[in-house]
Write a protein that binds this DNA or RNA. Structure first.
Lengths: 154, 154
DNA sequence: CTCCGTTCGTTAGCATGCTAACAACGTATT
DNA sequence: AATACGTTGTTAGCATGCTAACGAACGGAG
């Protein structure tokens, strides 16, 4: 019983994701930062200050995964954990001044790889790709939020 | 200097890849197998016998990554390493008979998640998505094979 | 105010990714 | 044959992913 990987969205999304991350990691390596770490800085630039849980939600990873990311970035001096006055459970993550001069280079690397990845695609095709990926993502998110076998109205 | 993740192919491919893997892992967990391990069996069903290096190439991962996969699957009894007569360096991977009864269930899980992921997309849109992902993948592969700063014809 | 369920961050343990460096083997060159 | 170079698989070390289980803090019900 065969299974056709070549026509599987999961297969292609997996290997494109690996290839994209690898490409960007190569660009970022000289700056001592990784793909996911650069995304953390991106969200901090975008939103200012974020708690670990909200950052985890934005990056679509679980809490322990984000903790590891923040641990390494705090050790490297890119970010800092601050206590939250309103809620003593929360720890607010903010970018340090040491990270600011590097962010410009990171954004340049990200744009470069993005340009290379979408070479040969016109604006419509790129938008179509993003639209289709959002649709698939939404399908998978809804799936985890409302598993079919848990819908039991008594 | 902001960077717009929402319109980044890399961002969406990353989180869709994570969501897809997570969904399939949930389906496969009862069978004691993981997403990547199921793909190994898929390739073995498709091609019969494969050396580790050719399997790594098909799965788009590096040799040490594939070694870990095969190590765990051999320990679980799904696959077996066999020596190769023609080339004593190679180790041929083949599926064991113990894995065969599970493969049908794995393929069913894969088809189920695939159907859920592409819900709301017609055949044309799905093909378009696969086509665009292949294009992006090809761009990134070419990039790593011919880095621009290494083209130096003297 | 106390109890109880939820949320937040952490820990432990495992699966998957990578690069760098190595030994063993194959192959081409001299 | 001897040398050199490429290929194959392994090891070590690190970065990212996950679930399960936990303590601390919040918030609402009684």
């Amino acid at each position: 019983m065969k299974y056709d990987f070549e026509s599987s969205v999961g297969y292609w999304v997996t290997i494109v994701s690996l290839a994209y991350r690898k490409a960007l990691n190569e660009e970022l390596a000289p700056h001592g930062i990784t793909f996911r770490q650069s995304q953390v800085l991106g969200w901090l630039v975008h939103d200012g200050v974020l708690s670990q849980s909200s950052l985890a939600a934005k990056m679509e990873v679980e809490a322990p995964t984000l903790k590891g990311l923040v641990d390494r970035m705090e050790a490297a001096g890119w970010v800092k954990r601050c206590s939250c006055m309103d809620d003593r459970r929360k720890k607010l993550i903010r970018m340090t001044s040491a990270a600011e001069p590097v962010w410009q280079k990171i954004a340049d690397c990200a744009r470069k790889v993005r340009r290379e990845a979408t070479a040969g695609l016109n604006r419509d095709e790129t938008n179509q790709l993003l639209h289709l990926l959002r649709t698939v993502h939404n399908n998978l998110i809804l799936r985890s939020e409302v598993p079919a076998d848990e819908i039991q109205i008594g």
